[in-house]
Amino acid sequence: MEFPAIALLEFSSIAAGIEAGDAMVKRAPVQKIQSGTVQPGNFLVLVAGDVASVEEAFAAGKEVGPGALADCLFLPNVHPTVVMALGGQRQAAQEDALGIVETTSVATAIRVADAGVKGAEVSLLQLRLADGLGGKGLVYFHGLVADVETAVAIGTDVAHNHLVRHMVIPQLHAEMWDNVNGYGRFGQHFGWEAA
């Protein structure tokens, strides 16, 4: 499903997040709201729809829980691949390069993904958010080396003080591609049968 705009608010308080989500959908007729807990005990509220409604809902959410608001984003022209990645879609790849941007927040990771795919000829391989990452965000870009370098540079500029680490691996080994294309959690890789 494609949406012209999305907004996400990341709260350090679950109660504040629920209150904010309620205020958001009461104020504006968004097409979609998704909310829930993520590690490490944060609460996310994501709304999607037309630009005006999402912007109004975003403003309402920020008014409710400012003391508990850890990070937020409003993307009035979100890239369609970011929306697909938020829905859990992953691309399998074995291209020339892998670019990785690791962030301290979910909102920043989404912002990095959107900026990277808009600013460079890359594909968004994965967008991993919070759970299993201690609340961090993880963005994987793939494509030709120069393009991946551009996407990562754009992403690190967008991440500002929410950046943990970034890198470009020019030619990731085929066996590592198998791991990167997988689920991402260590235990999921073992296909060992019980003895």
Rank of each mutant, 00 (worst) to 15 (best):
V51A: 05
V51K: 03
A52G: 12
A52N: 13
S53P: 11
V54D: 01
E56T: 13
A57C: 08
A57G: 07
A57W: 01
F58N: 05
F58K: 03
G61K: 02
G61N: 06
G61F: 00
G61S: 11
E63Y: 06
V64T: 07
V64Y: 00
G65M: 00
G65L: 01
P66I: 04
G67W: 08
G67Q: 13
A68I: 07
L69C: 07
L69F: 05
A70K: 14
A70S: 13
C72F: 11
C72E: 11
L73T: 02
P76N: 12
P76F: 10
N77R: 15
N77G: 13
N77A: 15
H79E: 09
H79G: 09
P80Q: 09
P80T: 03
T81S: 15
V82E: 00
V82Q: 02
V82S: 00
V83H: 01
V83S: 04
M84Q: 14
M84T: 06
A85S: 14
A85I: 05
Q89S: 12
R90M: 14
Q91Y: 14
Q91F: 12
A92I: 11
A93V: 08
A93D: 05
Q94I: 09
E95P: 11
E95G: 10
D96H: 15
D96M: 14
L98R: 06
L98Q: 06
L98I: 12
L98V: 14
L98K: 08
L98C: 05
I100E: 07
I100G: 06
E102F: 07
T103K: 08
T103L: 13
S105R: 09
A107E: 06
T108Q: 00
A109L: 10
A109V: 01
I110P: 02
I110Q: 03
R111V: 00
R111M: 09
R111I: 01
R111W: 03
V112P: 01
V112Q: 01
G116C: 07
V117D: 02
K118N: 13
K118H: 10
G119T: 06
E121A: 15
S123M: 08
L125Q: 14
Q126P: 07
Q126N: 14
